[in-house]
Simulated assay, not measured.
Amino acid sequence: MPPADAPTGPGPGPASRARPDAEDTLDLRLTAELLALLAEEAPVYGYGPEDSGLLDRPAEWKPVTTRAGVFQLVPVRLERDLTVISRWMNDPAVAAFWELAGAETVTAGHLTPQLDGDGRSIPCLGVLSGVPMSYWEIYRADLDPLARHCPLRPHDTGIHLLIGEVEQRGHGIGTTLLRAVADLVLDNRPRCTRVVAEPDLRNTPSVSAFLSAGFRYSAEVELPEKRAALMVRDRTHRAQL
């Protein structure tokens, strides 16, 4: 199961300890060359896991305007993005939760199974105002090992993230982007009723960012790699949170 955390320092189940009354029991700036490459790749589909349909093709999701700038999820290409993602993974604040510090081969070993997989987890760069500044994994939580440890619903969609650039941390940008990505999921995945995440309970800034982004704390879950907070953003309540 991949890491699952958030803004200030990101992060990668046996049983869930959900509240008895919980409803869950029911169920670097882009170069001109890189910008040109993205533009060329944009209309080309059908050769990557993002095109399997399991996640309704994140490669086709449109950019969104946030208070922090125009934001877009761009599916990872190993040959293009490995170096920058590996650099982020070697940041001590990131490595403390993702545990992927080391040579580029370590990061490649994490990315490759997703890139070669069936599309149930799509690794993406988060590009803000033309700058790759974060790493995201959009995944089918109901098809993930997470489902062995807590009650999930069909088409529940999970989020893992890290804010890679230090200067982007601690200013509320993580909260802004979490809300934007959750909205992207709900807008582009009509069968998805909930967006979920499982940040490490020790990662207080991450849990706080999810709460500020409209997620609710649903349960404490014991996973093989960590004790996590199951965070949920419900489609039915998105307008109120």
Rank of each mutant, 00 (worst) to 15 (best):
S206F: 02
A228Y: 09
G11V: 01
H237W: 12
A180M: 05
D142V: 01
A39W: 09
D81M: 01
E79W: 08
A180Y: 04
G214E: 02
L78C: 03
R77M: 10
D51R: 01
T236Q: 13
L35D: 11
P154F: 05
D56L: 05
P49Y: 00
A96L: 12
L54V: 09
A219G: 10
A219S: 11
E167M: 12
G126C: 02
A96H: 15
G130W: 07
V84Y: 09
N90Q: 08
A6D: 06
L128Y: 02
R19H: 15
R19C: 15
Q168A: 11
D187F: 11
A22D: 14
T107R: 00
D142N: 09
G48Q: 01
P12T: 07
D183Y: 06
L37A: 15
R140V: 00
D24Q: 15
G126Q: 01
L28H: 14
R67G: 12
L184H: 00
S212P: 03
L162Q: 04
E222A: 14
T31P: 03
P199Q: 04
V94W: 00
G158H: 03
V207C: 09
P224S: 15
R77L: 11
L128V: 07
E198S: 08
D91W: 07
L162F: 03
T25Q: 12
E23Y: 10
G69N: 06
M231Q: 00
R80H: 05
P12I: 06
A197T: 06
H171F: 13
G46L: 09
G214S: 05
A228C: 07
R29F: 15
V221Y: 01
V127T: 04
W61A: 05
A209V: 03
T157L: 03
A197H: 04
L37F: 09
G174F: 00
T31M: 04
D91K: 14
